[in-house]
Design a protein around this nucleic acid. Sequence first.
DNA 1: CGGGAAGTTGACGGGTCTCAATGGCCGTGG
DNA 2: CCACGGCCATTGAGACCCGTCAACTTCCCG
Lengths: 244, 244
Amino acid sequence: MTAHTSCISCPLRSCGAFSPNSEAEIDFIQQFKERQTKIAAGGTILSEGKSGSELYTVLSGWAFRYRSLSDGRRQIFNFLLPGDFVGLQDQLGQASPHGVEALTDTDLCVFPIKRLWDLYSKHPALGFDITWLCAHEELIVDENLLSVGRRSASERIAMLLIHLYKRAESVSLGGSEGVPFPLTQQHIADALGLSLVHTNKTLKRLHAAGLYTLNNSLLKLPNPLAMAQLADYYALPLRGRPLI
Amino acid sequence: MTAHTSCISCPLRSCGAFSPNSEAEIDFIQQFKERQTKIAAGGTILSEGKSGSELYTVLSGWAFRYRSLSDGRRQIFNFLLPGDFVGLQDQLGQASPHGVEALTDTDLCVFPIKRLWDLYSKHPALGFDITWLCAHEELIVDENLLSVGRRSASERIAMLLIHLYKRAESVSLGGSEGVPFPLTQQHIADALGLSLVHTNKTLKRLHAAGLYTLNNSLLKLPNPLAMAQLADYYALPLRGRPLI
DNA sequence: CGGGAAGTTGACGGGTCTCAATGGCCGTGG
DNA sequence: CCACGGCCATTGAGACCCGTCAACTTCCCG
């Protein structure tokens, strides 16, 4: 990844997962983009409780969005993959209600929130896209809430593995060896409302049942059907989504 | 409530919870509004799995947004109060991933989704407002996910009671007798990922501790501080939000 | 007076949590 | 080169929160 990727030749646009934009729109996005930055694995992209004045699109790498209770219990709301957009929630109040942390080394496109209005007035279609992204993010959080509220531990893990597998695959992270899977068991536990120990034991059982393999941080699902059945999963039609 | 309320004299606009709009914007909203409808308590506003082509603003009454697993387990994502907006998630796919059901008799403003593009192109500020509403809804779902994932049963219930109390209060539903509270214990259980029986027993304990009273479906919180402490609650600054 | 929905209660079992200890891997520094 | 520490994964034991089952009551409404 170069220090500065130009939007018109953004590698994400050619992977097939995103809907196309007009040249004028891409030009606008290019000048909307303030800069590009790298965050090392484990680094903070957004602090809980701090005010943010920027929006981010993940260009490469993984991150996650979370929030903690005052005694330290942590809940991960969602994981961010290339093409995902984050930061909208922060214009609502002074302080960002959630934190965002890099899971791997991450490249981000940075947009100044104060010029968001420009985008809406000059390119309503892009404004529409941002709403779409926001609604899509909510859909994923809904899905996670359903898991945490109503699925058993093994169902939750099955759901998470399928879902992340599909998302990683859709942005061309997949290979014959599987898709990259940079989460630790602690991340899985925090995303699913489980304890670390119970997560470990449940993972062990799923592995013994041949439902997944994980080698060199590469995830494979040898029996997708059994997995989907366990999770009560049905895919939403994942057609092209906007990219800002 | 008359059969058709005009937007310019919408009773919600005068309750202080919503940010003002220009006359031109309100005119547009008025003609964007296709019709107004009443749904009886328990009635379906949006079916799970059916495609929706409409957007709704709750004019009066309560509703809730939920989704079920194929074996019937149900998770409530959020409750809808007057001024809340719903339906955005449905343009994403053919089928609505969630259902919406009326909790009380409910009046709805109905907007045709196919004219949403008009809104974005002619009144970008309203498009911006819709994004805001979407981000706000996501914030609430995040908060619920944090509860369900990381709070104990009594903490969850405390959180829900405080949150709904504040929301009802903010749209002037409050009186000296408390705010209306139309949920059954089953709804509370489904929103918090708990069983009905455990919800009942936990509610009993909170009641015995003097943390809430419920008479004639009117909720009162005699000791808000203790409640907030139990829930690890801190209010987000609830300033004016948009109203479509 | 009957019936259904909502709330209440006790007994019991199990899924999940906590505590505690161990082993593997890896980068760092002596 | 090896010792050390830190992060991550693993495993066992025991406790407890919460779920399930099954009754019963209360209330409302026809």
